[in-house]
């Protein structure tokens, strides 16, 4: 017998049924359908096997120093001098339009200082943020490596301190 359900209905009912998320009425109707539809029955069987297999998939134990490493990075970031654009946006204007205005003024200043003929300026405006982030992150990685070396013995304590 051909299945009366279209593909999407089949899949939606199937997933709901196997994870027991169908409302009781829909579940009953679907059960009745299963008793007469081999195709859907096979799909349910296979979905159950799949579900079981996915349940078997355990994850490895987290590295012990995960938090410590993260907090070290955060601390390093806090201690690192802030890039100019961050300092600017952190400055709390009550009046938001001031930020783009200030930015425009700053860019104009940069332009004036560096003089005309800077064809790469436009390109820099886009790239500057990404570049700075990358630089900061590189610096952080180095600092973190140093930090990891110097605090290797005090690992458990570090987590508590935050």
């Amino acid at each position: 017998m051909n299945c009366i359900l279209n593909t999407n209905e089949q899949e939606e009912l199937l997933l709901g049924y196997v994870s027991a998320k169908l409302d009781p009425e829909t579940a009953r109707t679907y059960s009745r359908h299963l008793s007469s539809c081999e195709r859907c029955r096979t799909m349910v069987e296979m979905q159950k096997i799949l579900d079981e297999s996915l349940d078997d998939w355990a994850t490895p134990t987290l590295s012990e120093n995960f938090d410590q490493k993260l907090f070290a990075r955060i601390r390093a970031e806090q201690e690192a001098p802030k890039p100019w654009w961050q300092a600017l946006t952190n400055f709390n204007f009550g009046w938001k339009p001031a930020i783009p205005l200030a930015l425009a003024a700053l860019l104009l200043a940069v332009f004036l200082v560096r003089g005309p003929g800077q064809s790469e300026l436009a390109q820099q405006q886009d790239g500057i943020k990404a570049d700075e982030i990358e630089q900061v992150e590189k610096a952080l990685d180095d600092m973190e490596a140093l930090h990891a070396l110097s605090t290797a013995d005090t690992a458990p304590a570090a987590k508590e301190s935050i």
């Binding site: 799909m43 069987e45 296979m46 979905q47 096997i49």
Partner: peptide, 10 residues
């Protein structure tokens, strides 16, 4: 994913 398990069908 189901079809990757075809060989294990009951």
């Amino acid at each position: 994913l189901r079809s990757s398990l075809r060989q294990f069908s009951p």
